[in-house]
Computed example of a mutant assay.
Amino acid sequence: MPQIAYLECVRCHAQISAEKPQTVHAGCPVQPPGSLYVRYDLTTLEGTNPDEVIASTAGAPWRGMWRYSAVLPDVKPVTLGEGWTPMLHSKRLTNAYLKEEGTNPTGTFKARGLSLAVSMAKQYGLRKLAVPSAGNAAGALAAYAAAADIEAHIFMPRDVPFANYVEAIAYGAKVTLVDGLISDCARIVAERREEEGWFDISTLKEPFRVEGKKTMGYELVEQLGWEYPEAVFYPTGGGVGLIGMWKAFEEMEQLGWVKPGKRPRMIAVQAAGCAPVTRAYEQNDNASQMWQNAATFASGLRVPKPYGDHIILDILRASDGIALSVSDEDILNSILDWAKYEGIFLSPEGASVTAAYDQLIANGVLSPEDKVVLFNTGSGLKYTDVTSNAMGLVRP
Rank of each mutant, 00 (worst) to 15 (best):
L141E: 00
L116E: 02
Q123T: 12
R112D: 08
P157R: 04
A152P: 06
G83V: 13
P86Y: 11
K174Q: 11
H89K: 15
K110V: 05
P77W: 08
A147D: 00
P161F: 04
E167Q: 15
A146I: 12
K91A: 15
P161S: 08
A168F: 06
N136F: 12
F155D: 00
I169N: 06
P161Y: 11
A111T: 08
R92Q: 15
Y165S: 08
E100S: 14
A138C: 11
V166L: 15
D159T: 09
F162K: 15
Y171R: 14
L126G: 07
A134N: 01
G135V: 03
E167C: 11
K174M: 00
M156K: 07
G107R: 07
N136W: 01
T103I: 10
H153N: 10
R158Y: 01
A148P: 03
K99A: 00
G81I: 12
A170H: 09
E100Y: 15
L116I: 15
A138T: 10
Q123I: 13
P77Y: 02
L80R: 02
H153D: 01
A146K: 13
T176H: 11
R92H: 14
A152I: 11
G83A: 06
S90D: 07
Y144M: 04
K174W: 02
P161C: 05
N104Y: 11
A163G: 04
A130N: 13
A168V: 12
L93P: 02
